[in-house]
Computed example of a mutant assay.
Amino acid sequence: MTRKLDGSKLVIATHNAGKLREISALLAPFGVDCVSAGELGLPEPEETGTTFVENALLKAHAAAKAAGLPALADDSGLSVTALGGRPGVYTADWTERQWFEAEPGKDYKGRDWYLAMGKVEGLLCEKGPDVDRSCRFSCTLAIAWPEGDEAVYEGRVDGTFSWPPRGTMGFGYDPVFVPQGRNQTFAELGLEEKKSMSHRADAFAKLVADQFPDTP
């Protein structure tokens, strides 16, 4: 049986304030008090895993051990069928500009999601006009306890990689992802509609069903 969260304090293994707010809001109805690894001054471990599960567990165990509290981490990304599942766990890495991609006089560091979307489109175009554009967003949520126990919840949403990007309400690869059964990209859908079908919502639903089974 999966170990259950039996206290009110949970470390969210992130230094991203936006992600902390999102996860805190999802867990608030269950009486969980969230604090981020960033607020606790915990270091960010190097993500050396080759799968979403490996990276999520790596981050969760590192935070749990350092804080002496249960910790929740997530790892997510876009996998494109025709590209052999890339960018996958390297989804965020594809946003990083190289020195030769920098604009004159500007720092090349930082994340450029439009650049990343363009890299995917370029690789698909190399395969011809009839290339398979199916893809999926994946999200893995991992909970780890200081004693070494762990639990993993995986969510996904399937769709199509669309070009050019459309919409302004999303982030990351949302402007090029059209979920199955829709004609709009995630960036064109309202926040509540996106949340109801997203990969993160799928993973959280599984977490809640397992960790808080007696909650109405």
Rank of each mutant, 00 (worst) to 15 (best):
D202C: 11
M117N: 05
D33Y: 10
T160Q: 08
V157Y: 07
E121D: 08
G7P: 14
A28G: 01
A63G: 00
G170D: 10
G172S: 06
G172E: 05
T51Q: 15
D112C: 10
Y108D: 04
F30G: 13
A92I: 02
C135N: 03
S134H: 14
W113L: 06
P104S: 15
S36D: 02
C125E: 15
G88Y: 04
G190Q: 05
F30R: 13
R97V: 00
V152I: 15
W94A: 01
D210N: 12
V131K: 03
D130P: 06
G41D: 07
G85N: 15
A56G: 01
M1T: 15
R21L: 11
P146H: 05
G38I: 03
K127Y: 05
D6W: 09
P87M: 01
S76Q: 03
Q180I: 11
P45V: 02
R136Y: 06
T160F: 05
L124F: 12
S24F: 13
A102G: 06
T185W: 00
G122H: 08
L207H: 11
L124D: 06
Q98F: 03
H15S: 03
E121K: 12
D130T: 14
P175D: 06
H199N: 00
L124P: 06
G49L: 07
H61F: 10
L20Q: 00
G38H: 07
R111L: 12
D214E: 14
K119V: 00
Y173K: 03
L141E: 03
I143H: 14
G41M: 09
D130K: 15
A144F: 01
A17F: 00
D158L: 06
A17W: 00
E46Q: 13
Q184D: 12
T48E: 03
L5N: 14
T140N: 14
A63W: 00
L115G: 08
A56D: 07
K195Y: 13
G68Q: 02
L189Y: 10
G122V: 08
G118H: 01
E101T: 04
T50E: 02
G84R: 13
H199R: 00
G77K: 15
G88R: 02
P129S: 09
R156C: 05
C139N: 15
G167N: 13
E193D: 08
A64E: 08
D149Q: 05
V208Y: 13
L27A: 04
G31Y: 10
N16R: 15
G88F: 04
P29H: 14
S134D: 14
S138G: 13
T168Q: 12
G148D: 06
P216V: 10
A66W: 02
L141K: 08
R111F: 10
A151W: 07
G118Q: 07
D130S: 14
E22Y: 09
R111A: 14
A64I: 11
D112L: 05
R182F: 08
T215L: 11
A37T: 06
V131W: 01
F212G: 04
Y114S: 13
W113D: 09
H61K: 11
D210F: 04
A66L: 09
T140F: 15
E101W: 04
P146M: 07
G172V: 09
M197S: 08
S36P: 01
A203H: 15
G159P: 13
T95I: 11
V176F: 02
V35I: 04
R97N: 01
P129H: 12
A64N: 07
P45K: 03
S24A: 15
W94G: 00
E147P: 05
A73W: 05
M117P: 02
E22W: 10
V11E: 04
E121Y: 06
V53Q: 08
